[in-house]
């Protein structure tokens, strides 16, 4: 569904991504793992059209995304939940979710899409009328994912959905993300802690200093010494 080829990105003359290749298939959960500053966020933001690559291609269902504006990419069916959640504090929780149904129409009705978002994060429903600023960090994360889901995207980009969350709610969120793939969406998830990678991950990429240094099954990554050295934080 999504194919990234030889992606190279510079930010202010510094090379941030170098020859990044990755793929996400239908209903797949794919993880991009790397440390802070390794290039995960840059990869997702480039796919979303915020940054223009100097080289390489990004194709989504056979269509090149390079050069499209961000809102056009969203309209094609790519949802995005950024690292800092970036929910709209000036709008209520319900409005945050509804926004996505106004900008893109799909086969599903708006009511159904909102309902699916609520169903995935039932905790949020209680806060529907609250302002976005009144949520805790974890709730913001959930709202951000729920909002991206309400766009009814075919592919969801989640940037560190587990970051800053208490360990207690991690399993629940992990379950919800698994449920998203069962609903028929592909997911590309960026994560800095390899132990947070959900169990049903179909493929895992490890990125370090802007280069993909590992691609394969999560279990193999856990056995790979270089990978562990860089992202596992193991004492040698």
């Amino acid at each position: 569904m999504l194919a990234v080829q030889a992606l190279t990105v510079d930010i202010r003359a510094s090379r941030i991504l170098d020859d990044v290749r990755l793929e996400v298939g239908e209903r797949e959960l794919v993880c991009l793992v790397g440390r802070n500053g390794a290039g995960k966020t840059t990869t997702l933001r480039t796919i979303m059209g915020y940054l223009r690559p100097v080289a390489g291609s990004i194709t989504f269902r056979g269509r090149s995304l390079v050069g499209l504006r961000t809102h056009e990419i969203a309209a094609l069916g790519v949802g995005f939940s950024p690292e800092e959640s970036e929910i709209f504090g000036d709008l209520t929780v319900a409005e945050n979710i509804e926004i996505a149904t106004w900008t893109r129409t799909t086969a599903r009705s708006a009511a159904e899409r909102v309902e699916r978002a609520w169903a995935l994060f039932p905790e949020l429903r209680a806060y529907a009328a609250r302002g976005g600023t009144q949520l805790s960090g974890g709730e913001r994360k959930m709202l951000s994912v729920a909002r991206a889901l309400a766009l009814d995207p075919e592919l969801l980009l989640l940037d560190e959905p587990f970051e800053g969350l208490s360990p207690a709610i991690l399993p629940a969120l992990s379950q919800s993300i698994a449920a998203i793939t069962r609903l028929g969406h592909g997911v590309l998830l960026a994560e800095s802690n390899i132990h947070h990678v959900p169990e049903h991950t179909s493929r895992l990429y490890v990125i370090e200093r802007g280069e993909i240094i590992f691609a394969g099954k999560p279990q193999d990554a856990q056995r790979d010494a270089t990978v562990l050295r860089i992202i596992g934080g193991t004492v040698s």
Binding site: N193, I194, H195, G232, G233, T234, V235
Partner: peptide
């Protein structure tokens, strides 16, 4: 620190 299992699991990421 190396001997502190609590630290090793939470910070060093070893299970």
């Amino acid at each position: 620190i190396r001997a502190d299992t609590h630290v090793v699991t939470t910070v060093l990421g070893k299970r």
